[in-house]
């Protein structure tokens, strides 16, 4: 009986693959429609996991997998990122050698702004991420940039996310600059393109394969992916940035991962974050 059920599930997944493709808007500038993509993705997960609330997708795999959720809820009672947020606050408020600080670089003194990142920067003609602007702030004030993956940059980013908790994610694709939509499209293509020796796309695991076991791992739904970064991962034993996670998953398709903050990873973050519009910031998060 169990076997028959599993078989049906397997076939169901194969069918779902076709569905995702059909529900999306196009893959070229003429047809791509970010808002239609966002609605289609929500509808897709709503029909896949009817018992999960859309607002709960910010909790990753725990939104759809009841059995690991309990463990995670216990973990969240004494959040493993608590100290890192405190350290981040201290770092954030420690002045640079020139007497200025991070607060001088950001809108609203850097408090409660996470929900607006990443954003399309028209002057620079590129997507800016929060981590990127943290380092730009340092360099503008004569300080050395921080390493991207973990450590101080993740702590500062975690503190900034903390001050933005529960704010609705608000990614805009300005219509007065066609390059913004092109950046979104680039990120979307990266997400759906098959790559590497294993011929895997991000969507293979995080859309059609979401909440289905690959050995002992359960990939989360892509909806909600970026809301809680930086993340404290038990496997890392520390905080890490979103691009650190991108690199790890990119490598899992047996292809060579790219560097932190390269243009296509920023575009990927732009695309993924746009999908989360309407959900709220809940960083930093904790994951297995």
């Amino acid at each position: 009986m169990k076997i028959i059920k599993k078989l049906a599930l397997g076939l169901g997944v194969a069918a779902a693959a076709q569905m995702t493709q059909a529900a999306d808007s196009g893959f070229d500038l003429a047809t791509v429609n970010p808002e239609a993509d966002r609605v289609a993705l929500q509808n897709y997960f709503e029909s896949r996991f009817p018992q999960s609330e859309i607002s709960d997708y910010v909790n990753g795999i725990y939104a759809v997998d009841a059995s690991s959720r309990e463990q995670w809820e216990e973990l969240e009672e004494f959040p493993p990122y608590e100290f890192a947020v405190e350290e981040g606050e201290t770092l954030f408020n420690t002045p640079f050698a020139n007497g200025k600080g991070y607060a001088d670089c950001f809108e609203n003194g850097g408090v409660g702004i996470r929900q607006n990142y990443p954003y399309w920067n028209k002057e620079a003609g590129t997507v800016k991420t929060l981590e990127m602007e943290i380092n730009e702030c340092r360099e503008a004030n004569g300080e050395k940039p921080l390493k991207w993956a973990k450590g101080d940059i993740a702590k500062i980013s975690a503190y900034m996310a903390w001050t933005s908790r529960d704010k609705p994610i608000n990614i805009e694709i300005p219509s007065d600059d066609p390059r913004a939509k092109a950046a979104y499209l680039d990120g979307k293509k990266f997400f759906y393109a098959k790559r590497g020796q294993l011929n895997l796309s991000c969507a293979n695991c995080h859309v059609q394969g979401a909440n289905i076991r690959i050995r002992a791992d359960l990939p989360s739904p892509q909806l909600g992916h970026t809301s809680h970064f930086p993340v404290f991962r038990s496997k890392w034993g520390e905080l890490g940035t979103l691009h650190r996670r991108y690199k790890g998953c990119h490598k899992d398709s047996r292809s060579k991962p790219l560097s932190h903050q390269v243009e296509v990873y920023r575009n990927l973050e732009f695309f993924q974050s746009y999908m989360n519009n309407g959900l709220v910031v809940n960083g930093p998060g904790a994951r297995k």
Binding site: G10, I212, R213, I214, R215
Partner: peptide
Amino acid sequence: TQAGNQGPPIL
């Protein structure tokens, strides 16, 4: 042990 279920079972 610890088989995944992305694909149909082999039977």
